[in-house]
Design a binder for these strands. Structure first.
Length: 393
DNA sequence: CGTCCACGTCTAC
DNA sequence: TAGACCTGGACGG
């Protein structure tokens, strides 16, 4: 599910499905979950949701009781409770009958109906979490979708922070500034502007102090400032055509929201084809991809940019489960045996960018493929998606 | 069967 | 800046 748009769509889903539904009793948790118990029990309560960036907050609101049953009341919560959820890689909400409860439904809110229905937080990989009586995480910035002015201000006023020394594609994942952007959004946003992913963030974001194009034009005195000015003008002209980067951090996620409920990123879903059609770059056949400095796959087209990871930067070595008698290879040989494109690519076809993608077919023909640790490989992906599409028809 | 990959944080050398 | 945290689907042998 989970970048900003999916989190928001989840909140929309909860509000839609739970409107008018009365919940009752305790909030139950799966045995295996490490997230905290939710100390809330109430004879009758409502559930609403709101999202901010990559978090969703549920509010449990007790309904007024008539006070006739003092004993039952004592054990109950009569104050509203907020629970803040983070979805990790696989979290989502679903509202089902008890019978239809999915595997990995780790937190459950039971309706008062008979038979009861259940709002559940499902999270296959358990990277997600919740926090009873929680608040928006203090280290996360304003929501890119629904706090646009604050988001923008938070970036432009802190451009001098060291955080912006890094490549733009990596900074876009920094939730302190870009709360809601994730791996597919960064690719789509940079692709729209054809900004090389590994240019410095500060450079890419310069001149974003205002959205008004053509204000603050100043008289030029020297040649140097004249050149600077003309550079600025050019930048502004470019922005006029394409929209600036910060604005796209807002509008591109909203496009996904506007695909509608249940249409975000979820390859396992029936409806995945709409989202897939919306993608222009991420995992798209013909695009390039390389791993960034954090080992995340960056999808792009054109030049990677000057701050692209160097060859020496080892792609993530496959760690294998350790076995007692594992002496066939040295560590290095293991890595090679496991394969890892960056090395293989560079040895086969020297290039200072470890670019995969359009080169990939050729390289595969050249037998680079075995041991190819290339991130994803667009060809493979499209095959996989084709299969899924066929399966869902 | 085994390997690689995935929409994201976290904390510990 | 590596791992750690997890499950499961696609693919290769």
């Amino acid at each position: 599910m989970p970048e900003g748009p999916e989190l928001h769509l989840a909140s929309v889903y909860v509000n839609k499905m739970c409107k008018g539904v009365v919940f009752s009793g305790p909030v139950t948790k799966s045995e295996v979950s490490k997230s905290p118990d939710v100390p809330f029990t109430c004879e009758a309560y409502l559930i609403t949701a709101v999202s901010r960036g990559k978090e969703v907050k549920l509010t449990l609101t007790p309904l007024k009781s008539d006070g006739s049953n003092q004993r039952a009341k004592r054990a109950q919560t009569d104050q509203p409770m907020d629970i803040v959820f983070r979805f990790g890689m696989s979290g989502y909400f679903t509202f089902t009958t008890e019978d239809e409860l999915p595997k990995h439904a780790h937190l459950r809110f039971h309706s008062k109906e008979n038979p009861s229905r259940v709002l559940s937080f499902v999270d296959t990989r358990r990277f997600g979490s919740w926090e009873p009586n929680g608040t928006w995480h203090s280290d996360r910035g304003p929501c890119i979708m629904f706090e646009y002015e604050k988001f923008r201000d938070n970036v432009v006023t802190r451009l001098s922070d060291r955080a912006f020394d890094r490549p733009i594609c990596e900074v876009l994942l920094n939730q302190k500034y870009f709360n809601g952007i994730g791996n597919y959004l960064r690719a789509e946003i940079l692709f729209r502007l054809k900004i090389p992913p590994f240019v410095s963030a500060r450079t890419a974001l310069e001149g974003h102090e205002s959205e008004d194009l053509n204000e603050n034009e100043k008289p030029v005195k020297t040649e140097i400032t004249a050149r600077k000015a003309s550079h600025t003008v050019k930048k502004k002209a470019m922005k006029e055509e394409t929209g600036d980067l910060l604005r796209l951090c807002h509008t591109v996620p909203l496009e996904v929201v506007n695909l509608g409920s249940g249409k975000g990123y979820d390859p396992t879903k029936q409806d995945y084809s709409d989202f897939e059609a919306w993608l222009q770059c991420y995992y798209v056949d013909g695009m390039n991809s390389i791993r960034d400095h954090n080992g995340r796959t960056m999808w792009f087209t054109g030049e990677p940019g000057p701050m692209a990871p160097k060859e020496s930067k080892s792609p993530k070595a496959k760690k294998r489960a350790k076995t007692a008698s594992d002496n066939d290879y040295t560590d290095d040989n293991k890595k090679m045996a496991k394969g890892n494109t960056k090395k293989t690519l560079s040895e086969t076809k020297p290039s200072h960018h470890q670019v995969t993608g359009s080169n990939r077919k050729q390289l595969e023909k050249d037998k680079v493929k075995s041991g190819n640790g290339s991130p994803a490989g667009s060809q493979r992906r499209s095959q996989r998606l084709t299969r899924q599409r066929n399966l869902t028809k």
